[in-house]
Amino acid sequence: MKRLLGFYIFSFITLVLPILFPDNYYVTVVGLTVLINISLAVSLNLLMGYAGQISLGHAAFFGLGAYSSAIFTIKYGFNPWTAIFFGLLIVFLLSYILSRPILKLKGHYLAMATLGLGIIVHIFFVQADEITGGPDGISGLPTLSIFGFPIDTDLKWYFIFAIFMLITVLLSLNIADSRAGRALSAVHGSEIAAQMMGIDTAKVKSHIFVFSALIACIAGSLFAHQQNFVSPESFSFFFSIELVTMVVLGGLGSTFGAVVGAFILSILPELLIVFEDFEVLIFGAILMTIMIFLPDGLFVAIKNKIAFLAFKRSQKEVANATS
């Protein structure tokens, strides 16, 4: 109970918001973006924050999920759920085959490889127009139904996205406190020591890469159905960078850090609308400033500060008790 207290509070807030404000633009429109971005940031954090492996190409898997849903339902007439399954299969195979050679690399080599992967996939979306519809994308996805209930309003989509996001968060929290999570942290802390403790580091990294890609893939499919159409620009290199920024902004390695980072970065454009052309500039400035002055991220920095204060208070109490 105590382990997941934060999660229960968070779930409560997420699910009560649309009941209180069912017609609020920020809940049912911006909220959808927030929810999907949280799922993506949390999944990227598994790889970047837990295992310490940077990825500048996460948007590729998000895009592959979205395009699979669009292509298999519209071009080949499959049922949406079958299409989602095909998407998962494709992403599973691709990420599994690529994971070992890619994750053998470290630091900027890894950054380059994941970035290259993201760019290649994006170029494929733009160029292979017989399959992907080219720069215009594909529109007219069928409505997704769950047990015969069509998901056809923004409010219904809110709940679907929210449940998916909460599952992602829960899985991520579970992994943190487990043998698998510790193995990932060990890889992050010292790969050589991890190997000496019997951890097959290549396997561990490969598994989390695939896992994180699969979550992004499902997010992509849901996103495509909700939007009703897909186009390449949602899955570009810049979106990958944005996801990295979310994770870093909240604090690498913390699930709720990723949640906070994704939340801030998703509503930021709404708040910056008044600044219009300044948006890019401000975005870059935030990214730099956070990394220079708060390399642990906003959420983690605040959490550490609170823990530190609590520690000092307990020290004081000990001192008082002994004197």
């Binding site: 698998a180 510790r182 942290s185 060990a186």
Partner: peptide, 16 residues
């Protein structure tokens, strides 16, 4: 606990 890795066996899926 990482040192106990070899004496335990839950994988990623079971842990998640």
């Amino acid at each position: 606990m990482v040192g106990c890795h070899l004496r335990s066996k839950s994988g990623l899926f079971a842990s998640a």
